[in-house]
Design a protein around this nucleic acid. Structure first.
Lengths: 197, 197
DNA sequence: TTAATTTGCTAACGAGCGTTAGCAAGTATA
DNA sequence: TATACTTGCTAACGCTCGTTAGCAAATTAA
């Protein structure tokens, strides 16, 4: 277990500040000296808390992956519910994770490729598994006659695409609350999926 | 006019190779020495053709912006067509640009933030104008009773989000042709937008 | 009170960065 | 043939990078 909360506080603070910088400048363009300055430290001091720059990225990417899996599992555990309901809950759970930490989400979505092997391959495997969860849900929905789509894989990709663009325009102080955004996204996306004819 | 085709051939080749590297490694993580090696050159030789690393990024980002605007204009010039038809054509035109040069598209979508001012602000203004074009189309569609959505801005963002994720999974040698992808995306997205009640 | 842990500093390392200057060969144009 | 342009080289510039070593103060645990 290596969630942010269980780390020593200073280390967690480094992770949070680094995540914000990685988001706005990108991993490669963020220097350890910038990060140190943002924390009121000298660059060398960071290494009393962390092993390397990439270690931070690793923790952010894999930590958020864990969060996404947990949220999906919780959203779909009520197996007596209709597939449509489960999918709606999974969408809303995904949106909730994205909005709860949009900085980490952006890093998760865009900066993982700066992981070196084998972490990079492991990460992609996790991401594939997550996409497969959505794909499976949509497939079962199609089989049950609740959803219609020419291709479950295609539909799953498009669905996650719509959701994952969110952190690039979401503002915590914006007009819509996370819950409203989640509802609307689910409405709009399911509106194109639910069998109406 | 500074499209890729009108450049001297060597310069155009540098742009193309750089675009491919910027896509896979990211702008900041791509060094001029890597770029030179990929072209069979020494690093210093690049500067007989270009002024700076950022100049390449600038040309890619603004060149593709031009392409997107031109494609949208051509797709919506038949003003006697229904809004739904225009929107479908705009979606398909957007997808066509994305698939025709998915490397440049990825750079356009993700690496623009490494532009320094004032180029960065100019770029964002262009992007906003492009989003506004889609928003306007959706708004007119709602007003005409052809489309239904609680919020045209929200619908436009989600729509472009679905489309813009494409370069991250599209493979030119994949199962679906660009035209098939364009059609399916338009179907799936409009299925959630077209007024059916 | 002693020992261990946490936190941070200064100084420096080897390496790689984008870029420039100066030169030279090849190619196209007049 | 003379001139200009294109293309490329070598060598080096000043700078920033991630990281380490060694030391020291503060805090916590025994």
């Amino acid at each position: 277990m290596s969630t942010a909360a269980s780390l020593r506080p200073r280390k967690a603070q480094i992770d949070r500040t680094a995540t914000a910088l990685f988001r706005s400048r990108g991993f490669a363009a963020t220097s350890m000296r910038e990060l140190a300055t943002a924390l009121g430290l000298e660059a060398g001091s960071l290494y009393s808390h962390i092993k390397s720059k990439e270690e931070i990225l690793h923790r952010v990417c894999f930590g958020l992956a864990e969060t996404f899996f947990a949220a999906f599992a919780a959203a779909t555990e009520a197996t007596e519910a209709s597939i449509t309901t489960q999918l709606r809950q999974a969408i809303e759970a995904h949106v909730r994770v994205l909005t709860q930490d949009s900085a980490a989400s952006t890093v998760f979505l865009h900066e993982w490729r700066h992981l070196s092997e084998p972490a990079r391959t492991e990460f992609l495997a996790l991401r594939d598994r997550y996409e497969a969860s959505f794909r499976g849900l949509i497939q079962r929905g199609i089989a049950a006659g609740e959803l219609h789509a020419p291709d479950a894989a295609f539909a799953a990709l498009t669905l996650l695409a719509s959701l994952n663009w969110l952190p690039s325009w979401y503002r915590p102080d914006g007009r819509l609350t996370p819950e409203e955004i989640a509802h609307r996204l689910a409405d709009q996306l399911l509106g194109g999926l639910i069998f109406t004819g």
